[in-house]
């Protein structure tokens, strides 16, 4: 077959879900028809630095990189892999945004953070340490987006433009079928207390949903399962800080009581639990503040 592409998959860390998303993809067979595999490493131990060094520079057409980057060692590996690949895909939320692991950048005393510090660093999105050509968002990437990536990267004659995100430029809400009532946010509801009405927008019912600030293209599948969007695909185009964006939306949905002290509004806002885990679930490491700092006290 002419022009078979050489692909590689590397997950130095992360949970293994990203590799699974590709293995389980109906597009896997198509992808393998159009490509040769240089390597498929699902743990950092699967591939040593020496083995990577021996590969030809730019010998890989497309490298899919999953999992977060933290200390010196993983940064060095990412840089070495970058030399070997013509194009690099940040595959999944961890590579794209730091992912769930990024929460350890903010939570004081987190065990994972201690580990990361021992490794000499904080969780970083891949783009903070090497140039990233494409992003496949999601935790793990949903099948529709995986399919699009396979089509555009391995089956098309032209390569996609650098900077392509294999998702929609619109928010998750655009694909969500729930009815809008434009209710004000007067009380924050939580899922463990009572399940939401499956046909009405969660925000309308007082449940926090990151749909408005999260990149769509997933088909709003979580909403179909009566679960909220928790933001795994990162911010919509044009938004820098996904967490800040949802906090600002929530604050705007709280109706003004007319009392200028704001006491009633503050009560609603105070009832939002676990601000960072809610607003920055996947994007803490890619947020504008990036990690917890020590500001005096």
């Amino acid at each position: 077959m002419p022009n078979k592409k050489r692909l590689a998959f590397y997950a130095g860390s992360g949970c293994g879900g990203c590799s699974q998303s590709l293995m389980l993809s109906p597009s896997l067979a198509t992808m393998l028809d159009g490509a040769d595999i240089a390597f498929w490493a699902t743990r950092s131990g699967d591939l040593t630095e020496d083995e990577i060094s021996q590969l030809d520079d730019k010998g890989i057409d497309v490298l899919m990189f999953a999992g977060p980057v933290d200390g010196e060692a993983s940064i060095a590996t990412a840089k070495l892999l970058r030399r070997k690949a013509k194009r690099v895909v940040a595959y999944g939320a961890c590579a794209h945004l730091g992912g769930l692991c990024g929460l350890t950048n903010v939570i004081p005393g987190a065990k994972l953070r201690e580990l990361a510090e021992r490794n000499g660093g904080f969780i970083k999105p891949l783009s903070a340490v090497i140039e990233v050509d494409y992003v496949l968002p999601g935790c793990p990437p949903p099948q529709g987006m995986v399919e699009r990536m396979v089509k555009e990267l391995f089956l098309a004659d032209d390569v996609p433009d650098v900077g392509t995100v294999f998702a929609s430029s619109k928010g998750v809400c655009a694909q969500c079928d729930r009815k809008h009532l434009n209710n004000p946010l007067e009380e924050i509801r939580r899922f463990h207390a009572a399940p939401p009405d499956p046909d009405i927008c969660l925000l309308d019912q007082g449940y926090i949903c990151l749909g408005p600030v999260t990149r769509g293209g997933c088909g709003a599948v979580c909403l179909e399962a009566n679960r909220p969007c928790t933001g795994c695909a990162g911010p919509t185009a044009g938004v820098l800080d996904q967490g800040g964006a949802i906090l600002q939306s929530l604050a705007s949905l709280v109706p003004l009581s007319g009392d200028i002290s704001g006491e009633k509004e503050h009560r609603v806002l105070d009832s939002i639990q676990d601000i960072v885990g809610t607003a920055y679930k996947y994007s803490a490491a890619a947020s504008l503040l990036k990690r917890r700092v020590n500001d005096g006290e």
């Binding site: 600002q248 704001g262 509004e265 601000i275 917890r292 020590n294 005096g296």
Partner: peptide, 30 residues
């Protein structure tokens, strides 16, 4: 407060800052 040209724009803005300050605190920023 109460004198905004756009009705409650400043109060909405204040609610936004109120919530953002909670997040800043979590990130260790005073």
């Amino acid at each position: 407060p109460g004198h905004c040209r756009y009705e409650g724009g400043n109060l909405k803005g204040a609610n936004r800052i109120y919530l953002l300050k909670r997040a800043l605190n979590e990130f260790g920023v005073n």
